[in-house]
Amino acid sequence: MYTPSQLWRGFRRGVQQPSFFGQELNRLYNRRLYRREYNTDGVDVMTEDWDNLIILDACRYDLFSAQQECSGTLERRESRGSHTVEFLMGNFSGRTMTDTVYVTASPQLHRWNDRIDATFHDVINVWKHDWDDTHRTVLPRTMTDYGRRVAAQYPNKRLIVHYMQPHYPFIESPEINVGNRLDGTDKTDIWGQLRNGDTNVSPSEIWEAYRDNLDRVLPAVQELVTTVSGRSVITSDHGNMFGERSRPIPIAEWGHPPGTYTEELVTVPWQIVSASERRDIRSEQPRSSSNRFTPNADLRPDDNAVTIDRLQALGYQE
């Protein structure tokens, strides 16, 4: 459900960018006139067989298949979302998962948890206190370090490690600025600029920066899966579009807009890395805090600006 301010911003965008109306019509079609909040045809990741679920944010299947050198078996899955919030809603909403610890570089669960209402044994919000101010994201090495530490702390829990890459910001290409519309202005992000032909950055430069982000994160993921016990799966919450046509209105899309269930966005990798020894998974009462990993981890109510600022840095819009 949209707020009045979001509807007003959407109307202004539609006047300035006619393709926005086509995008919204596609969203209405895919979400069945908003009767569903996510792609109900996608896989329920919590019912799959894994001890460690490694999420690469915004990773396309085709690029992962071309770039990855991890051991194991690569399969395809259909995601429940074309956007992180849809993925979280589709897989975690209303669930009690006290056998699982979620370690995340993304602020999205924290931002929307009142709506998602997910209960894990523990949530480690790495983005709160190990944020890299230079690159304006959480770096892959940081996530691997947390994954190893949390796996050692919780040897009897399933582990979800949500890396930010290959999602923007582009670590090797900081000059490419996505921008955002979270602040309520009419600024257009790089995906909108590409859609409207309003940027001097070429699509090939964006693709190379996106590929470089994946190349940056893959060695860190490989290190994690080879140092933690149990069966691991490497996957993504959604993909990313680079000018391919959406449906049923055939407009060229960029980025990963919600409610857009194209192959480029919902076909995700599912790399299975088997293990000779599985973990003995047990449910326990949720932990009240994660201070042993991130001191003073819980943001105060007046620190909501920190969450918004970091979502802006990641190129998100509401």
Results as ranks from 00 to 15, higher is better:
D237I: 04
A220G: 07
V43E: 08
T185Y: 11
D57S: 09
V85G: 00
R141F: 05
G184S: 06
Q67I: 06
N39K: 11
Q6L: 07
G259D: 05
E284D: 06
P219I: 06
P140V: 00
H83D: 12
D303F: 01
P4D: 07
P248G: 02
I190D: 11
D41Q: 15
V306K: 06
P248T: 02
V161G: 08
R141A: 15
P295G: 07
E78T: 14
N177W: 08
R60F: 03
Q317S: 13
E172A: 15
F21N: 11
V201C: 06
H135E: 09
E69W: 00
H83K: 10
M46V: 07
R77S: 08
A305C: 00
D183G: 11
W8Q: 15
D212Q: 14
Q285E: 15
D114F: 10
L33A: 13
A105W: 05
V126P: 06
E172L: 13
V266E: 00
R247K: 10
D215Q: 14
V268E: 03
G10K: 12
T226M: 11
R77L: 10
T226L: 13
W207K: 13
Q165P: 09
T100V: 11
V266I: 12
F11Q: 06
R216S: 09
L28I: 14
H256F: 09
E208K: 12
L311N: 07
A118F: 08
V103L: 03
D189R: 07
S289V: 05
E75P: 01
I206A: 08
Q312P: 09
I206S: 10
L63D: 13
A152P: 01
N113R: 04
N200M: 09
E24K: 15
R231N: 01
N30E: 14
G230Q: 01
W270Y: 13
E318S: 11
L25K: 10
G72E: 06
T294Q: 07
D298V: 09
P257S: 11
F87N: 05
D298Y: 07
S204T: 08
A151V: 06
I124K: 10
F11K: 02
T119V: 15
P155S: 05
P155R: 06
Q16S: 10
G230T: 01
A220Q: 12
C70D: 14
R148C: 12
E318I: 06
T73L: 07
K187F: 07
Y210C: 02
V123S: 05
L63V: 14
V266P: 01
Y154I: 08
L28A: 12
P140A: 00
P107T: 00
T104W: 00
F20P: 00
E264V: 02
H129Q: 12
E48W: 02
S283N: 01
N125Y: 14
M46Y: 02
V126W: 05
W131G: 01
G81N: 03
S173V: 08
P295W: 14
Y316I: 08
D44C: 05
G259T: 08
D280A: 13
W270A: 03
L214P: 02
Y316D: 09
E208S: 14
W254A: 04
Y154E: 15
Q193K: 13
L311H: 04
S288P: 01
I190P: 10
T134K: 13
I124H: 05
G147N: 03
Q67G: 00
D62N: 05
P301F: 04
I190H: 12
F170K: 06
N113V: 08
R231T: 05
Y2A: 12
A252W: 05
R141L: 03
V101C: 12
P219E: 05
